[in-house]
Nucleic acid binder design. Structure first.
Lengths: 191, 191, 191, 191
DNA sequence: GATGAATGAGAATTCATTCAT
DNA sequence: CATGAATGAATTCTCATTCAT
């Protein structure tokens, strides 16, 4: 009736939407995309199945949205207004950021990895993901170029692979992979 | 008139079996385990759905067999009754072997990774896979212990993560990941 | 506009559920449990196959529910708050009840017998069924013991077998088996 | 080549045929008709699936043959060109025969009952079965008529039902149903 | 907005039967 | 006569999506 009511409606919508996405992320990470049914999501999110389709066009749309928002959050972190120069100090900061992000967003990365491995799903998300990978690689390459390494591209690839491997191990077996010690060793070895 | 001989039957079985496994590996790698239906496998293998069940007990059995054979091939490589001591020379050999294996068995590793990421599928294969991972980790740990590193376990984990990352990148984007150069750099940096 | 009320939903569920169970009982009785497909049930009940699974967990659950409800109705009749003593008068009453039940629930007994005969299905329902058989047998045994028969257990078994035989004949060939006359003769002969 | 060889072939055929039928009867009795696959029968009978179809037109033909032979054996027993008069002595003999038959042919009766309960299967065997039931009923009716019972048909039906019930109980729970004691009690009570 | 009943396509699996050899 | 590989239809069951209310 009143404007305030409209706002309340919107608040409800937003919170419900967030609730659905949170639940879906959890379930996708636990059981995989294909292994998670709309039914399970809606019941765990305590809404009706039908209502899901009021918030998302379908299961695929839900997935894309989830990945999209995850990527956006990451992009926000590594926000670009920097000069493109990575000093050793900044590198340390960068590593800290990545590791902290990893721990905070473990479920998202679990889903992200699981999806990366399924080429059929990958297509759905590839563009978004490349948008975040590319600048990191180029930042790293520049870093090694400035250090006058023989083959800065290769060094960047190797370091990128190392990050990937660390994430992989941490995300899927956090119990067996002490992130803090790994981080310290990484800094000691490579910076 | 006369029935087929036992040898003839065995030949048929072997070739069909191989044909099914090849097709299944491809499709599992392409679309994931859950994303691949028995129907798709059988039609791509140009056999009837029913025949699948003459060769494998079911989809799960097919998967396990696939993983099992892959693992066995790897174990054969790293099996040797060696003394458990890894010299730098042997480490180089080891790396060469891994990289060569990776290139030859790319599809298998793609599948292997895809499976690792799907928790629901993981349990089906975890035992087999651990059987091959564990000895490698302990070999690496010993290697670093002998080099008097402060924290050999952590060094082994880090190196393991690096291998994982390299495999991951190569397996999923071989075009963007020049394996030979990476290998050279790896040896130069770490041995 | 407004969603259906909870009551409306419940009414729909109850009627659908009853409709499915009625159809299933008929078909199970006609063609046996194994000889009746979910497809046939759903098409005769004019619903989709999928909807079956909204009401029952599966074919086995449907069967168990059917048996369960039948058994419960019987248990209600022979409800136990009696003193465990069966006088000749009560025995007459008991026989009348059984015969009346038989006539009213012919389809259920047809199913019940058909199931008893299929060992693979029997185990699914054995417990429930024993729960109703056992007290009747012990009631009969007591009756004969009080009459000072030499071998009350055997008398009870024989009478039980007679009931079974009567039910069997009536249930499967009601046209050739005049229940009323049989009942009268039974009472005349045995009480 | 020689006539003797031909005879040998026939002997092999006959024994193999008997072997198949024995196995099929066992499995049908254990798991029901629908619950028994041709595959199981042939493997337990140690022949190939294909050979089954050399001996029987199909599963249904196998069933009909089985029932047919069973019925024929029974008919042979009760066949005698007797005068149609049943004295009490003969009745005792008759009962003894039935009980002995029951014990010897338990598996057959188990199958027979299981089939009787499935109307769709019943049709396949009804004629054969009536051929054996009818004369028994008329024999019993005559017996009671001669004893000047008020309602000899009903007495015969009741006695027939009792036999059915006894068979039913014995065939499906031989452990709980001591046939000898039941027989003695039956003779004592009814003759 | 909200519900959950209802659908229908497709999944894994089983099995009687056929057929080349 | 004998084999068992091969087929295809049928079966049970799942699930994303639609829709009447």
């Amino acid at each position: 009736m009143t404007p305030r009511t409209a706002k309340q409606f919107e608040a409800i919508r937003n919170s419900r939407r967030a609730q659905i996405m949170k639940t879906a992320l959890e379930l996708f990470a636990e059981n995989g995309y294909q292994g998670t049914s709309i039914s399970k999501i809606s019941s765990r999110a305590k809404i009706s199945k039908g209502l899901m389709y009021n918030y998302f066009q379908g299961k695929e749309d839900l997935l894309k949205t989830l990945i999209g928002e995850g990527i956006n959050e990451i992009l926000d972190l590594f926000d670009p207004n920097r000069d493109g120069v990575l000093t050793p100090e900044e590198f340390k900061f960068f590593i800290n950021e990545i590791f902290s992000l990893m721990a905070r967003k473990r479920k998202f990365y679990k889903l992200y990895f699981a999806l990366m491995m399924q080429p059929s799903v990958r297509i759905l998300t590839e563009q978004k993901i490349n948008a975040v990978i590319a600048p990191m690689v180029s930042l790293l390459t520049d870093y090694y170029r400035r250090k006058n390494e023989d083959n800065p591209e290769m060094e960047a690839l190797l370091m990128g692979a190392l990050f990937d491997g660390i994430m992989l191990n941490y995300v899927f077996s956090p119990g067996n992979f002490p992130l803090d010690q790994i981080k310290d060793l990484l800094i000691k070895r490579f910076i």
